[in-house]
Amino acid sequence: MTENSERRVVSVIVINEASVLSRITDLFSGRGYNITSLTVAPIPESKYSRLTIVTSGSVRVIEQITKQLHKLIPVLRVYEHADMVEKEVAMIKFPASENLSDIQALCEAYNGKIVNAGENTIIAMVADEPKRINNFLKAIKRYNPKEIVRSGAVALER
């Protein structure tokens, strides 16, 4: 219980079929573990999908969960990432009255730009490491963001 909690990123390649997602998330919920973020999308030209799961918990329990993930019949492969490139997308809606060029400059520092400008609002998008996304979201607070959405992380082993 007192074991140290650690942030872990796990990718899972699964057959793209009904119920596969709940099979995977059940392994976490059954142990009282929270999933911080989860992204799923089909792998092009295959019958598989790739899930990227960000979670935190004791090393021992996470290891056990990944072993149990392997055991699920529709799971092809599980990667416990150690050395990876990790990216996340965030979209932020601002009132159109905010300073556009300031926001534009900030976005550029975080691999982003303004992707939509309307009558009342503008939408900006950035793509970066989750940690840097956190920093970006702090930095833009003073421009009164109305809505923020994060995609959850995706990762590739180097």
Partner: peptide, 14 residues
Amino acid sequence: AVGISRSCTKHNYL
């Protein structure tokens, strides 16, 4: 049924 049996079977099918 498959929702219930998921956690107490090796595998299940609907």
